[in-house]
Each structure stands twice: as C-alpha cells, then as structure tokens.
C-alpha cells in the first residue's frame, strides 16, 4: 500500500487570529515494506503530518494517495482507511479505558465488526507480538506498569491488522530499557509482517538504526529526505536545525577532519570499528 503525499498544507484554526501553519507544501512518497523515520524539532509538524495519513485531519490543500486512492476525496470511507492505516498516538496509554486488558485491545477489532472468534484470536496474537503475557488478559489496564500500558495500547492497534503502522514517539517518557524493548519490538513487527512502518522520533540514534528512509521536518516543511546516509551527509544543515547526527557519525566526521580515512556517513559502531581498525593497521604498516 504505497503512500503518496502531494503539496500537502495544513493550517490550524484557519481564519482566526490563532491560525498556525503546521504543514507547508509537503511532498513525499513511501514504497511498500519501507521503514520510514520522521524526525524534527518540537512543533515542526510531525504529528500533524501523520494524522493526515488516516484521515483524522483534512488537508487545507494538497492530496494524499494511499494505494492509489485519494483519501481526501469525500466519497472515501474513513473507516476503510483507518482499518488499513494504524496510528499509535503519542502517550497512547492515556487512551486506555476498558475494565480488562483483553477488552481494551479488542476495542479496535470490535469496531471493525469482526466475529467473536476472530477478535479473540487477534487480541491474543497482538498480546504475543508486543510481549504481554496472556495471563494478564483479565487484569485492569490501569494496574500494570507504564511500559506495559504502552504495549497494550500498541497491541490495540496491531489487533486491527493494519497494513501501514504509524507510531508517534512510541518511546517518549520511557526509561532506556523500556525504549530499547519497544524499538526492538517495532523492528521485529516490521520484519515479520512487512507492513510500511512510520516512526516519529526526536532521537536520531533511534531512527538511524532502523529506517530505510528519513524525513527531516522543520517548521512545517520537509527539509531533507533520503536514506540515513544521504541525510547524515548534511550534518551542518541538521545542526542548524538543532538536530545533529548520531554520535558515531559525528565521531567519524571528526576523525575524517583529522585525516583518518573513514567515510563521513558511518551509521553504526560496527562499521566505524572496522574502518578505524583498518586505518590503524594501515598506519602501522607504513
């Protein structure tokens, strides 16, 4: 289900003194199976952008095509779009409301009008995927830890079996271990189900590890778009936006300035290690 966004603009509170241009002429494409990272400063329009992708917000101008269908068209059923495009909001644990974890995860599939058996199957499947033990199914979602709540909320979306999964800062407010677990789960889900995954984040480190494509937002515009390597090559531009590059990329750039033969678009520690060892061996041999 490829996504295509054309000249998308959005203004909050249009025609009032409080009007805010949140998106300004945004254009991009996402292919099947891609893992896309969206990064940008607070207020750059990331959340606004992703809410357009499942029809929660209507563009002020521009077009959005999902699988070739223009979802800004009034004739398109929003329910069908939301079935295909799963959106996990920032701090999704605040949307839990049911008496039991099972019922909460079942809310989405129930709204899709599925049969009892199908719902049950999907709920348990989703619990397995996010790593919530089936024994917890009858517990209240308000009795478990923050990290678990978040997984329950993510499971609530996964149980709808979307073909596009969008997550708005899924690691916000978690401790390092919780962050790591959630991110790895997301990567796992992506690799297993091959759905388009869009991850919104503040952290270059997080995004650099997984994304095939990075969209850098700044003040409602797309500033840079490309593979992680292409994006990190523009380190100066990123720094001007207050974003920076992953520490290891930054280190590689510094080394390169000092005359070490190492590419400036290093992404992982392993890569850097190899080049540095090769360089050190090289200088010794001379």
């Amino acid at each position: 289900m490829p996504i295509k966004v054309e000249n998308l603009s959005f203004v909050y509170n249009e025609g009032t003194p409080y009007a805010t241009v949140a998106l300004n002429n945004v254009t991009f494409e996402i292919q099947d199976e891609e893992f896309v990272g969206i990064i940008g400063h607070t207020g750059s329009g990331k959340s606004t952008l992703i809410q357009h992708l499942n029809g929660l917000l209507k563009p002020t101008s521009g077009k959005i095509y999902i699988n070739g269908v223009d979802i800004t068209d009034k004739k398109v059923s929003l329910k069908d779009i939301r079935k295909e495009v799963g959106l996990v909001f920032q701090y999704p644990e605040y949307q839990l409301f049911e008496e039991t974890i099972f019922k909460d995860i079942a809310f989405g599939p129930t709204n899709l009008g599925l049969s009892e058996e199908e719902i049950e199957k999907r709920v348990y499947e989703a619990m397995d995927i996010v790593g919530i033990s089936r024994e917890l199914a009858d517990k209240s979602p308000f009795e478990v830890s923050g990290g678990q709540k978040r997984r329950i909320a993510i499971a609530g979306i996964l149980a709808m079996k979307p073909r596009i999964l969008i997550l708005d800062e899924p690691t916000a407010g978690l401790d390092p271990k919780g962050r790591e677990e959630i991110l790895n789960k997301i990567k796992e889900i992506h690799d297993k189900y091959k759905m388009i995954t869009i991850l919104v984040s503040h952290s270059m480190e997080d995004i650099a590890r997984f994304a095939d494509k990075i969209i850098v937002m700044n003040k409602g515009r797309i500033e840079i778009i490309g593979t992680p390597r292409e994006v990190f090559r523009e380190a100066e531009k990123l720094e001007k936006m207050g974003l920076g590059v992953p520490q290891i990329t930054s280190l590689a750039r510094e080394l390169q300035k000092k005359g070490v033969t190492i590419p400036e678009d290093i992404l992982t520690i392993e890569e850097a290690k190899e080049y540095i060892i090769r360089y050190l061996r090289g200088t010794k041999n001379v």
């Binding site: 939301r82 949307q95 409301f97 989405g108 709204n111």
Partner: peptide, 28 residues
C-alpha cells in the same frame, strides 16, 4: 482522535449508541 484511529464512531447512530460511544472518551 486516538479512539477514532481505533475505529470508534462518535457521530452516527441513535442516542443510546452515541451515549455508549462516549465511554471510550469520558473514562480517559
């Protein structure tokens, strides 16, 4: 919005259905 993303419908149906539909909004 978060509940609408999960397929909740706040706008259609009769009064009883709508009142029930408010639970996912009011509890949180």
């Amino acid at each position: 919005k978060a509940q609408m993303a999960r397929g909740a419908d706040f706008e259609s149906g009769n009064i009883v259905k709508r009142a029930k539909g408010l639970v996912p909004l009011l509890v949180p």
